[in-house]
C-alpha cells in the first residue's frame, strides 16, 4: 500500500512536468522552422494618424455666411463621390449647412446671441460616444472604431434604415437611386455607393490612414480643427479649454465629438 502510493505520486509528478514542458517544446519547435515561408502580415501604414477619440471643433466666429462653408462642403463631397441630387427627398449629404434652430434644440439655447441664431452651421456626423446608430444596426455594418470614429462598412449595409431612424442629427442619407449618374467628377480612388445603401461622413478614415487630415479641415482655412479629445495637449483640447463651445442636442446623452465654439 505504502509503496504504491509513493509510486503514484512519482508518476503524477513526472506527468505534470511533461504537461508543463509542452508549450515550451511547441515554441522551440516552431521557431526556426517556418522562417523561410513567413505568412503574409497585415499592418497599419507607418504615416497613419492615430488617436483614442477623434474630434472636431468648428469655430463659428470665423464664419460669416454660407459662402464660407461652400468650399469646405465641396472638398468633402468631391473626394468621396457624393452625388448632387436635385430632389431634396433623395439628397445625399456628408457635411452640410444647417440653420441654428434646426441643428440645435432650441430650449437650451433659447436666448443665445442673435449672431449665432442667424449663422449657417456646418453639420456632419457627430461620431457620438454612445452612438444610437451603432446599437440599432442589425448587421453591424455601422460600428465604432477604436479611435472613436463611427464608421460604415458598406459591404454589410442591407439598407434597412434603422440607423437613419435612430440618428438624432439627420446625419445619414439613403440612396434611393443609383448615385453614379449624379456625380459630376468621379474620384476613381474612392468607391461610390450604390442604390439601397445608407451613407454618411467617415471622418476621412481613408485619409487618416495615410497621414492626412480630413479634407474638410484642410479646406477650411482654420474654421475646423481636428484632433484627439483624449490628449490634453491636442489642438482641440486647447481650443475647448479656452473657449466656450456647444454641442448638438446634449440632453440626449449621445456624446457628440463635434464641438461648436460660439
Amino acid at each position: 500500500m505504502k509503496s504504491s502510493r509513493r509510486k503514484f505520486l512519482k508518476i503524477a509528478g513526472v506527468s505534470a512536468l511533461g504537461l508543463g514542458a509542452k508549450p515550451v517544446l511547441d515554441v522551440l519547435a516552431s521557431s526556426g522552422e517556418h522562417e523561410a515561408t513567413s505568412t503574409p502580415e497585415i499592418k497599419k501604414g507607418k504615416d497613419a494618424l492615430t488617436a483614442k477619440r477623434w474630434a472636431m471643433v468648428v469655430d463659428t466666429r470665423k464664419i460669416e455666411s454660407e459662402e464660407d462653408l461652400k468650399p469646405i462642403i465641396e472638398a468633402c463631397h468631391k473626394i468621396h463621390n457624393v452625388p448632387d441630387l436635385e430632389n431634396k427627398n433623395h439628397e445625399i449629404k456628408w457635411i452640410w449647412a444647417e440653420e441654428f434652430q434646426h441643428g440645435f434644440s432650441t430650449q437650451e439655447y433659447e436666448f443665445a446671441d442673435e449672431r449665432v441664431k442667424h449663422l449657417p452651421f456646418l453639420t456632419l456626423c457627430n461620431h457620438c460616444e454612445n452612438a444610437a446608430c451603432v446599437r440599432v444596426c442589425p448587421t453591424k455594418a455601422t460600428f465604432k472604431r477604436e479611435d472613436g470614429i463611427v464608421l460604415m462598412d458598406f459591404h454589410r449595409c442591407i439598407g434597412c434604415r434603422f440607423c437613419m431612424a435612430a440618428c438624432p442629427y439627420g446625419s445619414r442619407s439613403f440612396n434611393f437611386r443609383d448615385p453614379r449618374p449624379f456625380i459630376k467628377e468621379t474620384n476613381p480612388e474612392f468607391p461610390t455607393r450604390t442604390k439601397g445603401v445608407v451613407e454618411k461622413c467617415n471622418f476621412c478614415a481613408e485619409r487618416l490612414a495615410v497621414g492626412k487630415l480630413p479634407a474638410c479641415v484642410e479646406a477650411s482655412n482654420g474654421v475646423l480643427t481636428f484632433g484627439d479629445l483624449d490628449d490634453p495637449e491636442s489642438e482641440v483640447r486647447k481650443l475647448l479649454k479656452t473657449n466656450y463651445a456647444i454641442r448638438r442636442k446634449p440632453a440626449l446623452g449621445a456624446g457628440p465629438s463635434v464641438f461648436y465654439i460660439i
Binding site: 503574409p40 497585415i42 497599419k44 480612388e189
Partner: peptide
C-alpha cells in the same frame, strides 16, 4: 476589405516582404 474597413489596417506584406496598399481599384 474586412481589415481595411473594420480594423483600419491597410498595408499587406506578402511572404517575400513586398508591401501593398490593400485596395481593389
Amino acid at each position: 476589405r474586412d481589415t481595411v474597413v473594420r480594423d483600419a489596417k491597410r498595408i499587406y506584406v506578402n511572404s517575400s516582404g513586398k508591401e501593398f496598399n490593400m485596395s481593389l481599384t
